[in-house]
Design a protein around this nucleic acid. Structure first.
Lengths: 160, 160
DNA sequence: CCTCCGATGTAACTTTATAACATTCGCCCG
DNA sequence: CGGGCGAATGTTATAAAGTTACATCGGAGG
């Protein structure tokens, strides 16, 4: 299970590469990567933090790209449905995917102090959970795993 | 990992036992199991389904136990904080705990067709996730695992 | 050219959740 | 006794998150 972690990194390439990967994927799969959708993904990629739909909407509004909630929600739906972004249920907020286009079984590590979110991968339907589901006759289609705690940075400055 | 599953069972004992267990626990731990709190737990125990705060509030209102949102939210906060109920983030809804008073590392199996929710237990900080967190230097305090899919009953009648 | 479909624009509204402040009640201390 | 403290409750108002419904636009294909 690899993890992107919380370390600093080259952010501009992070954004550029993310957009490029999604752009390529959309072209190959007949999906429309429209300006609003692209811009929303860029906004998400700028942060390793979950953004609320209304935060995103505010930025879109400043740029004249749409001002009503459905604009943001529709773009986010598109990104989430195609695996380019994820919804963090715990926060009612959204974050760019760090592995766009690849198969998905994400796990999120959410810092309760600074809202930073790291995405790790796991094998789908891992042992314990898969077994419990089989025992119950339940058919799993999708699993959300969100761990809340403190990121390395926020562990250093306890209650600053 | 045991699971309560989706089978039918003796529901009145289910409610009675749940209330009794929490009542005992509160007495031993100096917690106030007040009428509103008790009633909210009873309401939750009546269903193996997640209820929204406003659904609960409606029932309280019918019974004259309080009519404003904070009444329901405060009772739910109490129940959740003490492990007598859980919030299902995916549904913004609440469900009674099936193992009140015991240590907690719940996993939820949520039927997307009928909203039934089963609670299973896992060992805390299971291998894969714990390792990823350690790699990232992240300190997990709490983990939410919610699997969405179809319960046995809803698998039978596919698109009825 | 027309029509269909997916994407967008916009208004209005619902659902979920919290803030803020007043009130009540039991309980302990003096 | 009675004053004061803390926990729980009552109430008003408002914030935050998400949806419905309907009009419009623009390209792909007959």
């Amino acid at each position: 299970m690899d993890s992107i972690g919380f370390e600093p990194h080259d952010h501009s390439s992070c954004i550029h590469d993310g957009i490029a990967a999604v752009d390529t994927y959309c072209r190959s799969n007949g999906l429309q990567f429209t300006p609003v959708r692209r811009r929303v993904l860029e906004i998400l990629l700028q942060e390793h933090r979950a953004l609320g739909a209304y935060e995103i909407l505010d930025r879109l509004r400043e740029e004249g790209l749409g001002s009503q909630p459905p604009v943001a929600y529709r773009a986010l739906d598109f990104l989430v449905k195609n695996g380019f972004a994820h919804k963090i249920e715990r926060l009612n907020a959204f974050i760019a995917c760090t592995h766009p286009g690849e198969s998905h079984a994400p796990v999120f590590l959410i810092c309760r102090a600074c809202d930073a979110v790291a995405e790790a991968q796991r094998e789908p339907t891992q042992g314990q959970l898969g077994q419990a589901a089989r025992d119950a006759g339940f058919m799993i289609e999708r699993t959300v795993i969100e761990a809340e705690g403190l990121c390395p940075k926020c562990q250093e400055k306890p209650a600053a």
